[in-house]
Design a binder for these strands. Sequence first.
DNA 1: CCAACCCATAGCATCGATGCTATGGGCTGA
DNA 2: TCAGCCCATAGCATCGATGCTATGGGTTGG
Lengths: 99, 99
Amino acid sequence: MSDRLDWNDLRERRMAEPGAAETYEATRIAFELGREVRHLREGHGWSQSQLARAAGMTQSAVARFEAGGTVPTLPVLERLARALDRRLDVRFTPNADAA
Amino acid sequence: MSDRLDWNDLRERRMAEPGAAETYEATRIAFELGREVRHLREGHGWSQSQLARAAGMTQSAVARFEAGGTVPTLPVLERLARALDRRLDVRFTPNADAA
DNA sequence: CCAACCCATAGCATCGATGCTATGGGCTGA
DNA sequence: TCAGCCCATAGCATCGATGCTATGGGTTGG
C-alpha cells in the first residue's frame, strides 16, 4: 500500500499542529468516514466514478475524500450517504469521559 | 418568538431550491444541531459569550450557529462538543427507509 | 502492444463557513 | 434613567472544501 500520499503528510502535519486538539479530532473523523465510505462503496461493488456519479460529484472528489484529504462538509456527507443508501447521523453523545 | 430572522428566510429558501434534496437535509441537520447546542448551553447555564469563549469562538458565531444560519463544519461541531462536554458522533446508519 | 478501466493527484476557480468587530434592541436592577 | 448584560445581525476578510479538468501510473484483457 502506498504510504506516500501527500495527504497523509498533510493530515499528519495537521494533527501535529500545536493547539489542534479539536482539529485533530475532526481530521480523525474525516479519516474514518473516508474509510467507511470506501468500505460501503466496495460493498456495493462500485468504482469511485460510479459512486461519484450517484452522489453528484466527480471521481477526484471521491478519491480525495476517501483518502481523508480534506475534512468533508455536511452536504457532501449527506449526498454520499444517500448514494450509499444510508442515513447521515450527526449527534452530540454524552461524554463517557473515556480518557 | 421572532420568526422574522433573515436566516430563517435564507434557510427556507435554501431548502426550497430545486434539486436541493441533500442540501435540504444538511440544512435541517444544521438547524437541529443548533437547537441542541442551545439546549445544552442553557442546561449549563451559560450565555452565548461563555460558550463562545469555551469553544474558542465569538458570541456572534455561536448565535449564527444556534440560529441555523449556516451549515456548520466538523471542526466547529467538534469544538462545541468539547466545550459542552460531549462527544461528536458522525456516522452512516443503515437506512431504515422510513419513508 | 494497446485499449480500457481503476485510483491518486495536481492546479485552479468558486463558493460558503468562520472569525472578527460593531451595532442595536430588549430586559433588569441600581 | 442608565449601566450592564443578554442575544440577533450586519459587513467584511480569510481560509478551506468542493467542483472541475487533466494527468499518470497500475492492472487486465484483447
